[in-house]
Design a protein around this nucleic acid. Structure first.
Lengths: 199, 199
DNA sequence: CCATACATGTAAAGGGTTACATGATTAA
DNA sequence: TTAATCATGTAACCCTTTACATGTATGG
């Protein structure tokens, strides 16, 4: 998915919520949208410079009394217009790439252990994600009313929540199945050993 | 996610199910695993050559009576061993990147139309995916028993099915909400027009 | 005759992460 | 003093898609 220059727009989007530094963009983005979007410094800082160059944002150094140098960026009217136009364009769907499922796909019943480990790991991860999303959903209405519309943010959280719930159920059922397969495999192996003992 | 050389292994995995040409790998992969994995020719053909070079696969030209030249690849014992080792390694999770949700995240209540369009598009897409996955789930047990274990394939289908179902529900609810927001917006606009008519 | 499926490939361009470099401040 | 957090950035590397080139066979 060469997702036509989305990174600069994710940065611009964050700036549309208020002036921020690159570091803050990264932190807030991963806190508030980390369940469905991620951005690394290697994208953010070049994007900020690009936005400045194009006149979509303005940078001004901010120095808090006892703190490190910060470089705060502010969105310009031109930047808001560019963001509006980008938001109106249909989003590009990334081609699916789930490496865990690919490994499941190629696994066979003689190697059940590894998939069981991954399913358990995913269950833990997804349970944590669910906790995080639900906490945010609770705090959202009471939080600082800085955003114009909380509705859309809520929708993103609900998307993640529903899919996460579905994944948790899948993990639980899959782990059960794999455990049964593991037992069956063990039985087959001891039976085979009885038929042809090595010692 | 520089997902440490997964493409060659997805190709090798397909070869582990039987000798195939690059074209067939692509077709079968997108038919059977297209809901969670995708591979382009730009990856497949170089991967096939790499596998041959490393001795993990053998290539031999096959020419069907009245057909174009094919280049069938067969997995070697060394290839099976490499695949087995790769399968035992934990899968790498790709950082989340859902552009539609990102656009939702930055949307505000004055621009409800576009998100409503995307939600409807996603609903159609996901409904189709669901149909496809359920058809496969039905056909799987009756299909050619060439795979050693259908269980794992079934698990991947169930993963996609559950998440797809969750997405469909989200789409339906979100479309309702957006429709209500759209009506509210229209009412606000006509009210504003009454207060300050332009003509 | 034309579109579609079969079939193999290459090259460029773009997008993204990781790892590194650098340095200040604060809390344990 | 040490770890963690705040803070800004760069460069290399790699993966991936897209677009192109080329040609055959088949069905409408």
């Amino acid at each position: 998915m060469p997702s036509a220059r989305t990174s600069p727009f994710s940065v611009l989007g964050m700036l549309s919520l208020g002036a921020r530094s690159g570091y803050e963009i990264r932190r807030e983005l991963s806190e508030e949208a980390g369940t469905f979007w991620s951005e690394s410094y290697g994208q953010i800082y070049p994007a900020l410079r690009e936005l400045s160059r194009k006149g979509l944002a303005r940078r001004h150094a901010a120095r808090r009394p006892g703190g490190p140098a910060r470089c705060v960026h502010e969105i310009t009217p031109k930047g808001r217009e560019a963001l509006r136009r980008w938001l109106a364009e249909p989003p590009r769907a990334a081609p699916p790439r789930n490496e865990m499922l690919l490994k499941f796909f190629f696994s066979d019943r003689d190697a059940v252990d590894a998939p069981a480990v991954w399913a358990r790991a995913l269950l833990a991860e997804e349970t944590e994600r669910l906790r995080h999303v639900r906490r945010m959903k609770e705090q959202l209405p009471r939080g600082p009313q800085q955003r114009r519309s909380i509705r859309f943010w809520m929708m993103t959280l609900e998307y993640v929540e529903r899919r996460s719930e579905a994944t948790v159920v899948w993990c639980q059922r899959t782990i059960s199945t794999l455990d049964l397969m593991q037992e069956a495999l063990a039985r087959r192996r001891t039976a085979a050993q009885k038929r042809s003992p090595l010692e």
